[in-house]
Structure formats: C-alpha cells, structure tokens
C-alpha cells in the first residue's frame, strides 16, 4: 500500500499541481458542442478522505472547458455561409487554400470557423505533420493578418485582423505541440478530453511514482539526462500509439495515449527545472 506522502507526491506530479500547463487553451474551435470524457474512477474520489482539506487544492485549475464556440457572443464575424467573396472588393476566394485575406485587395476576411487549424497550415487532418515548416507559414500569415500591419484601415477590418491573427496564433501553438495537436484532432472528431483529469490506471501511477523518485534522487546532471531521454523515448512511443489509434478511429485508446503523453511531458518539465 502506498503511504500518504508518497501518494501526495504522485498526485502532485500527476495532476500538475505544481504548475498547470498552458495546453488546450482553445480559441474559436469550429465545433459542435463537445462530448465530455471523464475518468469515472479517479484516485482522489476513491481516497478523498485521506486528502480531506487539501482535496480542493488539486481541483484548483480544473476548469473543464475553455472553448469558444462559433457564433459566440463576442465574435464580430458574421459566421460562415456568407458566400466566399471578399467583403471589400468582391473578389471571389481562391479555389484552394483557406480564405483569410483577399489575394486581390489584401483585405483581412472575417473568421470562417469551418476552416480548421490544419487547413490554415495546409496540412491534412492527421496527427503527423508533413514536411513544411509551421513557423514559416505562421509568420507568413501574420504578415498578412496582424493588426499592427492594418493600422491605416477601417475599424471593421482591424477587428477582423484581431480575430484572424489570434486564431492563427492559436492554431500555430496547437499544432506545434504533439499533445495539443492530438487533443485538437480528438476535438475535431467531437471528443473533448478534460485537461486536468485524474488518472485511475494503477500501472501508470506506479510508473510515474518511480520516475518521480528517480528524479528526486538523481544527484547529477548525467543521471537526470538519462532519465530525460528514457521518458522522451516513451513519449515518442505513445505519440506513435496515438497516431495508430487515431488512424484506426480507436478513440478510447487514443485518449489513453494522450494521458500518457501528458504525464511524460510533465515529468520532462520537472527534469528540465532541475537541470
């Protein structure tokens, strides 16, 4: 049986109580209302008596959702289905590629939430990204969309620029990180995984406690780096498992893979802090 302090330490690393991750901050997701996925039998609910007063501490950052739905009350965009011509000069949208700014008059277009993040970056809706450098495309979009570059234009266009630019920033961040990219893919498939979900898999728990102990006991950089590369390898393995599961539409396993990835990332972060 695990003792209390050990459990506490495990809980800390597993639930990221040290510092919540900036992942999954999703803006303008083009989604139907998501289906929520929760682990039914979480460690803390089973053992909540042990934790009594400190229990709520772990729930501190457990905000379930941070999504903005299309047509939310703050959006200035008229939504999609407007007919794809430039609002300013009437030029039709190009046949290929997302229509974020007009090729003819360079006017920034209103946000069309049916365009997903993969389309913005010219990628297929798959976990593995193809060749092209995201950072380069990101910067190219910003050159066309960033509100600082439309300063002489109308308020209307400036607000479009604000929204488009923010959306491209979010798209870039979401796609450039393996975990957030995986979660976004699931979300596009209609599945929302809770960010701070507790974990019930005893095997993973035991493994993570061992890792934590190893990190704590590691006395030199060399050992830490060894642990780090071990965890990185595991992260890669599970990243591949996610890809395979997602390709097979095995969403239950894909969700398990994202949980693994999250905990490995946290462990890597712990190590980086100590290095």
């Amino acid at each position: 049986m695990w003792n209390r302090s050990k459990l506490y330490a495990a809980a800390k690393i597993l639930n990221g109580a040290l510092r919540p991750r900036p992942y999954l901050a999703q803006v303008f997701y083009p989604l139907p209302p998501p289906r929520r996925v929760c682990s039914e039998d979480s460690l803390f609910h089973r053992d909540s008596k042990i934790f009594d007063g400190s229990l709520h501490h772990f729930h501190l950052f457990r905000i379930a959702r941070c999504t903005i739905y299309s047509g939310s009350p703050y959006s200035t965009s008229p939504g999609h289905g407007d007919g794809l011509v430039c609002w300013k000069c009437g030029e039709p949208a190009p046949l290929a590629g997302p229509f974020l700014s007009c090729v003819s008059c360079r006017a920034v277009q209103p946000v069309d939430s049916s365009v997903d993040y993969f389309q913005i970056f010219g990628q297929e809706r798959r976990y593995e990204l193809k060749g092209e450098n995201l950072e380069r495309i990101y910067k190219e979009w910003q050159k066309k969309l960033h509100p600082d570059l439309v300063h002489s234009k109308s308020e209307k266009e400036k607000s479009y620029a604000d929204e488009q630019s923010a959306r491209v920033i979010d798209a870039y961040r979401t796609l450039s990180e393996p975990l957030s990219r995986a979660l976004y893919l699931l979300q596009l498939a209609g599945i929302l995984v809770d960010e701070e979900n507790t974990i019930g898999d005893p095997e993973l728990l035991a493994e993570m406690m061992d890792v934590r102990e190893a990190i704590e006991e590691a006395s030199d950089q060399k050992t830490l780096k060894e642990i780090q590369s071990q965890i990185r390898r595991k992260h890669q393995e599970w990243s591949k498992s996610f890809k395979d599961a997602f390709d097979k539409r095995d969403f239950d396993f894909a969700i398990i893979a994202t949980q693994r990835m999250r905990y490995y990332e946290r462990a890597i972060e712990e190590i980086v802090k100590k290095l």
């Binding site: 919540p20 900036p22 901050a25 803006v27 303008f28 501190l60 950052f61 905000i63 379930a64 959702r65 941070c66 999504t67 903005i68 939310s72 703050y74 509100p147 604000d162 929204e163 630019s165 923010a166 920033i169 979010d170 961040r173």
Partner: peptide
C-alpha cells in the same frame, strides 16, 4: 483562488473564454 484565463507569455492578439 486565482484562475488564469490568459496565461503569461501568450502571443497577442488573444481572446480566450472559460466557463
């Protein structure tokens, strides 16, 4: 408790909602 909605070092412009 303090719940951050926009975190430090987030690129601007940014707009985020939480429920």
């Amino acid at each position: 408790d303090f719940v951050p909605i926009i975190r430090r070092n987030t690129s601007v412009p940014v707009r985020k909602e939480m429920v």
